[in-house]
Each structure stands twice: as structure tokens, then as C-alpha cells.
């Protein structure tokens, strides 16, 4: 339930294996292969980066807190696991997800304001004469596809409760926080429990030198990070690190985290899996082309008349 992830609808209905997620997406594409061939789209992670940027833009204009934006991003990801993107106007879906997430996160905005911010942000792509009504209609669609399961568990709370235990510095906490922000651009929130994500973020924040200003600057050496993280975990004796030899004097905090993981019943393999996923995301992020992504989205929206 609300306080209990284990009994939540998130765990029971919105946590998938990679295979399940792949099957869901394949099924959507198979439903109308013509449509898919006619309008090629960038890979899911690049689309997610684009959506993240748009959510941030409308969120900033509305003064929305990070957690509500995270909720909106999760709604969008859930929605597009059930609905073929080319059948929707993603700008409308983004505006609607933000509108709905704000209500759920107790920072509501009037539907007219959200609609008009969308009109300003995405001129031409989002030009409905009756845009509040369209947004209201899309809200029905969104809620229906999510089966009204709108309460989400974020890793931020786990991070807040664990940062003291591992004596994270302010920089380390901030870095972990920004890694959590980034994970909404990956499938991780549909694959792993929020506390697994939080531990992944803490571990990475410790492995990345605290003097690193941000994850972007570190992403160049993604391979090194992955190895360092694995080595750190491996030193706890839970699994064999790939290739790298042990004993590269992991810092004491990492050691403490690793020991804690061994004593807890937390799935270490899942954490390693998460680390690899986010690292490979940072690599993919380097090839992201905003212009191309925008053009490909706008093309099907225009061609299919989804902007009207």
C-alpha cells in the first residue's frame, strides 16, 4: 500500500522483467507494422531523454517540484508500455502526465494553466482549439491505461533514509539524487524496486569521486565506473568481479555499504544489473541527437493529424 512497497500496485502490476517489457513493446509494434515502418523513431532511451527534457521544461514553467516531475515521467513510461506512441500526441501526453502527477503529489495546477503552458512551449505541435478539453480527455486515457494505479514509490525516500547510515557528504547525496533523477530516462523504474535504485545511486555516488561535479562529466569514463563499482561490491565477497582484480583499496564508505549489503538480504545482483543499465544509459546519452528526435516525433504527429 501507500507506505508499503511490497503490497503496492507498483510492485504487483508495474514491475516487469526485461523480457516482459520487451514483449509488451513488441506487441504494440506488431499491432500495426505499417505505422511503425512509415514513421521510424529513435531508440527508447533517446525518446526518454527527449520526454525528460520536455517534462522539465513544462515543469520549470509551472514551478513543479522534482518528485512530481519524476511521477509524471513514470506515468509516461507506464502509458507507453501499453499504448503505441505513434497513435498519440506525445506533447499532449506529457502535459497531461504533469497535470495528473501534480494532483497526486499535492501540488495541483489548473488545467487551463497547464494547457496554455503547453501551447507556449510547443507551438504548432500542440494547437488544439479546445486544448483543456483535449487534456481532460487524455487524462481519462492515461488513468485508464494505468488502471487508476497512480501512487508511485520513488527511490528518493530510500536515499533520504540511508544517507545518514552511510554518512554521505552533501556532494555525495546530491550526486546520488541526480543519478536517481537520471534513472527516469531508463527502464529501471519498471524493472527494479525503488530501494535497489537508491542503493545503486549511493554506490555510484561513492565510486565516482566526490570532486566530480556531476554525472555528465564522469560519463566519459563509464567503463571505469562500472568496474570500480563492481570491484567495490566484489570486495564484499558476494560475487566475482569481472576481470578487475580486487583490493584496489575501496574507500571505507563503499566498504561499509558492501558489508551492509552482505548482511542484509538485498539482491546484490539486481544492484549490479542497475549499475550496468545506468552506465550504458550514460554512454547512449552521448549519441543523443535532440534535433533528430524532435523531427521524428513531430513528423508523425503532423502527418497523422494528432496535433488537432
Amino acid at each position: 500500500m501507500a507506505a508499503n512497497y511490497w503490497e503496492s500496485t507498483q510492485r504487483r502490476h508495474w514491475q516487469f522483467t526485461r523480457q516482459q517489457l520487451e514483449d509488451l513493446r513488441k506487441k504494440l509494434e506488431d499491432e500495426d507494422q505499417n505505422l511503425v515502418q512509415m514513421y521510424p523513431l529513435p531508440q527508447v532511451r533517446h525518446l526518454s531523454i527527449y520526454f525528460n527534457q520536455q517534462v522539465s521544461r513544462i515543469g520549470k514553467r509551472l514551478g513543479v517540484r522534482q518528485q512530481a516531475m519524476a511521477t509524471a515521467q513514470l506515468y509516461i513510461r507506464r502509458f507507453y508500455s501499453k499504448v503505441e506512441i505513434r497513435r498519440t500526441n506525445p506533447y499532449l501526453v506529457i502535459a497531461t502526465a504533469v497535470y495528473l502527477a501534480c494532483k497526486m503529489e499535492e501540488c495541483p495546477h489548473h488545467i487551463r494553466l497547464v494547457a496554455s503552458e503547453g501551447r507556449t512551449l510547443w507551438p504548432g505541435m500542440y494547437f488544439f482549439s479546445n486544448d483543456t478539453s483535449k487534456l481532460g480527455e487524455c487524462e481519462f486515457f492515461l488513468i485508464s491505461e494505468m488502471s487508476s494505479q497512480m501512487i508511485v514509490h520513488h527511490p528518493y525516500r530510500s536515499l533520504t533514509s540511508l544517507q545518514g547510515l552511510f554518512s554521505l557528504t552533501q556532494e555525495e547525496s546530491a550526486l546520488a539524487w541526480s543519478i536517481i533523477n537520471d534513472h527516469y530516462m531508463t527502464d529501471l523504474p519498471l524493472l527494479f524496486a525503488p530501494h535497489i535504485i537508491a542503493i545503486m545511486a549511493i554506490l555510484l555516488s561513492l565510486v565516482l569521486r566526490p570532486n566530480t561535479t556531476g554525472i555528465q562529466s564522469a560519463s566519459g569514463s563509464a567503463g571505469t565506473i562500472a568496474n570500480a563499482a563492481q570491484t567495490a561490491l566484489g570486495s564484499a565477497g558476494q560475487f566475482k568481479p569481472t576481470g578487475e582484480k580486487q583490493g584496489s583499496t575501496p574507500r571505507t564508505k563503499v566498504q561499509k555499504l558492501a558489508n551492509w549489503l552482505v548482511e542484509s538480504s538485498i539482491d546484490i545482483e539486481a544492484i549490479v544489473d542497475c549499475i550496468q543499465e545506468i552506465i550504458s544509459f550514460y554512454e547512449v546519452q552521448e549519441q543523443y541527437n535532440e534535433k533528430l528526435t524532435r523531427e521524428q516525433i513531430n513528423r508523425f504527429v503532423k502527418a497523422r493529424g494528432l496535433d488537432k
Partner: peptide
């Protein structure tokens, strides 16, 4: 018209 679902209805549904 669709006018957006009230916050209390959204809460109750969720």
C-alpha cells in the same frame, strides 16, 4: 466537456 478530474476524485481513485 472534459474539464479535468477533481483532485479529490483523483485521490480517491488512487
Amino acid at each position: 466537456q472534459y474539464t479535468g478530474i477533481s483532485q479529490s476524485a483523483v485521490r480517491e481513485m488512487a
